[in-house]
């Protein structure tokens, strides 16, 4: 008998690890942004994207709420807010969320 043993490339992205987030999450204020990109570089999860002033965004499906982006931002344009529970996933996504390789 076997259970989950191996996975195809990119399958780990199916784990929506944002569900492990701490009590805080970042909110991008999008007022003072100078497009320095520091928030994107320090993010350990690689879940910040953007390449234009005030146009950055955070992928909450993977963000762990570590706060490094808010700490590094030279313009204090990111604040950490209380972590609000996500709206429940669609049933298809919830199925995918069950585990690696499933």
């Amino acid at each position: 008998m076997f259970s989950i043993l191996a996975a195809k490339p990119k399958s780990s992205a199916r784990n929506k690890t944002g569900s492990w987030r701490s009590t805080k999450m970042p909110r991008l204020l999008k007022k003072e942004c100078i497009n320095c990109g520091l928030c994107k570089f320090v993010c350990p999860e690689g879940c910040i994207s953007g390449s234009e002033k005030n146009q950055y965004s955070v992928d909450s499906e993977y963000c762990k709420g570590c706060g490094l982006c808010a700490y590094i931002c030279p313009k204090k344009d990111i604040e950490m807010i209380e972590n609000k529970p996500e709206k429940s996933n669609s049933s298809e996504e919830a199925e995918k969320d069950k585990g690696v390789g499933k």
Partner: peptide
């Protein structure tokens, strides 16, 4: 199954609480 560049796959990956127990059950049954 094996490591194969033409059919790439990973072994020994993360087994979350949703899947780990089944891996032990499978070894026990085997």
């Amino acid at each position: 199954y094996k490591l194969d560049v033409d059919n790439p796959m990973s072994f020994g990956l993360l087994g979350t609480p949703d899947v780990y127990q089944e891996t032990r059950y499978a070894i026990q049954k085997t």
